[in-house]
Design a protein around this nucleic acid. Structure first.
Lengths: 254, 254
DNA sequence: AAGTGGTCTAGACCACTTA
DNA sequence: AAGTGGTCTAGACCACTTT
């Protein structure tokens, strides 16, 4: 019989609040995640079986399973039939998220700034129309921004958006990131297709970014979709390779 | 009342085989995915409510939900409370997977080849030890490979692996990809941390890849973990930016 | 043989959206 | 008001791993 190694000192303090509007499985999931994060559940330790856990918490087993499954999906726990549920052994944190360069820089304490170079309505080119699922020639917003961190250029961002989704005043674009603007306009971002590559800087890009002509740049093209799968944004960005790289985590789903 | 737009011609032919060892939810999930893929369920169409679907198939609602949830996780379906479940509107396919360059090239009909340049045991450097969770100086495999497609160099791959996990003969490395070797050695790959960047080619890299010195290269560093979270591989790869880019899809989890 | 997670059922009530 | 997905329960049986 495998004995749960977890919580030898009883400091786990799991328990749900049934008067809360927060779903029970989510409460449990958060508590388990917090316990893992602060080390109360150490890597490799067993969680204790689902039936007992359900009994102790006064929940049904499916509800406990749902909580555990959420953490398995996040990569924090691993289930093995006949063995139990273990805390994943090592490193690995951050899930892959639809992140915003602005927020990423802000979170890293890099004091991001934005300078709006272009903010106009243009007829959609064939490429933009294809990416956004519009007809060629339909009006679209074209926004070009220079993104800086600590006063130094980091990226040059060119985005196209369908009209009528949100208002894009320069002042708002300079105060925050595009994703945050879109979310505060009530758009629920759902998924994105990205392509990441590299190429040499053109003279114009070199000028914007303060790099030499021909310097290596990291390029990203991204189309973002809302909850119904409609394209809400198409971006073509270039990053100074000397100052930026993409970090992410992949999970294999069984 | 929203009426299900899906399957106007009744060609959906859903149905499960209870004598099959394949889980019922998985059978249903596969059938729905196939229907979406071949267009029998068109983008934007409603799936019909879960209760009816369960009744028609002789399944319980939770089982039907589990099948639908799998496709929601894949980004093919969207649920909206009070509305229904819809097929996502547009493009977007491929989920983000822990993929293998070799398999990707093979799937694209690019006739991949591998030339093993280095395949030795070396003491782990500080960096490699940190990435693999070993002590500095412990022996590790060091493998350097040139990957070609249609006879042209595409990438130069340098990997480090702990000893004792699998046998790494040159002949096997040249016949397939590293991930396939690891999987066939019984390793279950679980997650990976990746970092993608760009830089200028060093003279050695330029020589390997047939690029000019200083040409822009796409770089990837990746540490791969097995089901228990132990690092099983650390790779530092460089790709010819002119011939390769990373494509992937992100999903936002609510 | 015992213990684990994996799957499945047949209900129930609630929150949200739309009409 | 009607219809939808979101959550939850209290069981059941099975497949797999370990002892």
């Amino acid at each position: 019989m495998a004995k749960p190694v977890a919580d030898p000192t009883g400091t786990l303090e799991l328990g749900v609040d049934r008067s809360s509007p927060v779903p029970l499985y989510f409460q449990l999931s958060q508590q388990l995640e917090a316990a893992i994060e602060r080390g109360a559940l150490s890597p490799g330790s067993l969680l204790g079986n689902e039936i007992d856990l359900a009994g102790r918490l006064g929940l049904s087993r499916p509800t406990v399973r749902q909580a555990i499954q959420a953490l398995v999906d996040k990569g924090l726990l691993v289930r093995r039939r006949g063995v139990g549920t273990q805390v994943v052994h090592s490193q690995v944190r951050r899930p892959l998220e639809l992140s915003s360069l602005y927020d990423d820089l802000a979170a890293a304490g890099q004091r991001p700034e934005t300078r709006v170079h272009t903010n106009i309505l243009v007829p959609a080119t064939a490429e933009v129309a294809a990416e956004l699922g519009l007809a060629e020639g339909e009006p679209v917003h074209r926004v070009e921004r220079l993104r800086l961190a600590h006063g130094e250029p980091v990226a040059y961002l060119c985005n196209h958006l369908p009209t009528g989704l949100l208002s894009l005043e320069d002042s708002r674009l300079e105060a925050t990131g595009l994703y945050r603007l879109m979310r505060s306009a009530g758009l629920t971002l759902h998924s994105a297709r990205q392509s990441v590559g590299a190429r040499a800087a053109t003279p114009a890009e070199a000028g914007h970014l303060g790099e030499a002509e021909g310097a290596p740049l990291l390029t990203m093209r991204r189309t973002t979709f809302d909850a119904t799968g409609r394209a809400v944004e198409f971006g073509a960005h270039v990053y100074r390779a000397s100052r930026y790289s993409f970090e992410f985590q992949l999970l294999v789903r069984p």
